[in-house]
Write a protein that binds this DNA or RNA. Structure first.
Lengths: 345, 345
DNA sequence: CTGTTAGCGCTTTCAG
DNA sequence: CTGAAAGCGCTAACAG
């Protein structure tokens, strides 16, 4: 492996000082057109790329921001990540991704890694990071948290109201006449999951529909979890006409369980999901779900970090989850008659 | 923001020299238990985290390897990424992800960024990076390429034989009696897509089934692309009894088009995909597809890089794509009779 | 076993 | 406008 080029070699090749080359690279100070041309030529010819490590050390800033994500392979988080990338475009800063699963060693985790990398700021997605670590972090550098409300750090937490979204979803089902609505919940230790459950409950309460404990079943946001929970429900013979799943992935698992029993969606049962991940619009039938503006959220998080880095007060856009009515929901089937009219609307 | 701690401050606090602290942190050299304890205590109490930038500069190595991916949000690539993460576990090296979409500026792309970051090695996924840049890179540092065969760099290219996988898929359909099999192709400039098309063709040829140009339709690996192409086929009235999609995502789009026309899978038509992304096992019906060992591939790529970094000759595991028969395929429907027996097997 | 001392490649005063 | 020189925080000889 050839040693990589240094600023000094470029300077030598262009017959100028290292300071001059540095000025040109960074656009700081003024340099004569003559020398500038010589330096540019040398950089080009030699294929020089500044060593960011050295730049960071000398400058005291890495021009990078850490992005901590629970799972880099999740359709939801990766959509947010894309937004974050977009948000940093052209800012000079670039994102450094780290997934929570990743352990450098038993003693240090991804967060430590990012801190060691001396990122200038951090964006934390999701809620698995211990609160105290987050507080400590907030004292160290600009921090924006997505999807969790941190007591004392409200101004740096970007959230969409999951509760309202879940309420809308449940209300939609209620309006279609459903009364026995299953909620396929997410992990109990997940803030969003709890908020969605709360929205489900509120909608039922507001509609005066009593909550049935047996209709709230535990899931884990995965297809397999949704499948298992629904399977269990069916096996137990619990009656229901609709499922509101805590996310799209678990709704897919639930639907497979229905499918196995020959139950049709939305004819026999209605299903609504949450998130509106890319594939959901193409399910058969296309899934009615609650859309989260993932890309925009990521982009906004990046914008907030950038503002914080500039020492400005970041503006906090409000995001709302909104129901996307597609084709997995329909009026509750009438048992005693087949008089479901053919009238439009 | 508090300035972050330096090695020197720790050394001062522990009343030892910086060299001693460095030795302890890196496990190089031997240090008396007494001083070691004092240093550990200081590190702990102060919350010291080494500055990787400085370490990298001093050491001449960043202990990081760049991972370039076409799209961080793709279910396929992100599964590979997970494998890569696993593969680096405990090695001391850590992955730095960059997606090709991301542009630092008009002049420099993700690859430049990774080079600037002085990653010690690189893993490139997929085939969008210009060949000459890859060659140049290979001269600079250990490089492993996944999913592309680079002339002259065969030893560093990890591939699964896409052609054989596609052949299996097509053969499976052929064995079920299908003759009018659509191939919903991937992007023409994508090596894997071309290989899958080649496999489709080879299977047809081997079976003595003539290739019908109108059955090979262009897609782009997306749900929307699959939907549009299938829609067009249906609108044109082209007869066919099965679809072999170049990937699972486009197969979902295709299925939506069928669904819109009231066509049932696998009763009326059979569909097979490629990749076996996480959701495919939970489609209704579960999708018959060609599985790629994504996680293993990622892990193997990491292992190869690690070997290269140690100066060893990396071993090249062979991966094969294998058909996973699920429920989206069935014997071609008999038009003139409904005599499809009820015999098992 | 431990401290001293050169750098690593780059930015940034500070003089010219 | 430009160069010299002093670090940035850490590692790695090199002496003790």
């Amino acid at each position: 492996m050839p040693e990589s080029l240094t600023l000094e070699q470029v300077a030598r090749a262009a017959r100028v000082s290292t300071a001059t080359v540095s000025r040109i690279i960074n656009g700081t100070g003024t340099v004569s057109a003559h020398k500038r041309a010589a330096v540019m030529e040398a950089i080009e010819r030699l294929g020089y790329r500044p060593n960011m490590m050295a730049q960071a050390l000398a400058r005291g800033s890495t021009m990078s921001v850490g992005v901590l994500t629970p799972d880099i392979a999740s359709p939801f988080y990766s959509a947010v990540l894309r937004g974050v990338e977009r948000g940093f475009g052209g800012s000079g800063y670039h994102p450094v991704f780290a997934s929570e699963e990743w352990r450098v060693s038993s003693a240090s985790d991804s967060l430590d890694l990012l801190v060691s990398r001396r990122v200038d700021a951090m964006i934390v997605l999701g809620g698995n990071t211990p609160l105290d670590r987050l507080r400590e972090l907030a004292g160290l550098m600009p921090l924006v948290v997505l999807g969790r409300e941190l007591p004392g750090l409200e101004g740096q937490c970007l959230e969409v109201d999951q509760t309202v979204g879940a309420e809308q979803a449940t209300h939609h089902l209620l309006a279609l006449g459903h009364r026995r609505i299953v909620h396929l919940a997410g992990p109990e230790d997940h803030a969003d999951a709890r908020a969605r459950l709360a929205g489900y409950r509120r909608a039922l309460r507001d509609a005066g529909v009593p909550e049935a404990p047996e209709l709230i079943v535990p899931g884990d946001f995965s297809e397999a979890g949704g499948h298992a929970a629904t399977e269990a429900l069916l096996a137990a013979g619990v009656p229901f006409t609709a499922i509101f799943a805590a996310n799209d992935q678990s709704s897919a698992g639930a639907q497979l369980a229905l499918f196995r029993r020959g139950l049709r969606v939305p004819t026999d049962l209605s299903v609504v999901g949450f998130d509106d991940i890319p594939g959901s619009a193409f399910e058969r039938p296309p899934l009615t779900t609650v859309r989260q503006p993932t890309g925009d959220m990521g982009q906004a998080a990046a914008a907030m970090v950038l503002a914080l880095l500039r020492g400005e007060q970041p503006s906090m856009p409000t995001f709302r989850a909104a129901l996307v009515e597609r084709e997995s929901t329909a009026p509750v089937p009438t048992v005693r008659s087949n008089a479901r009219g053919r009238k439009k609307g």
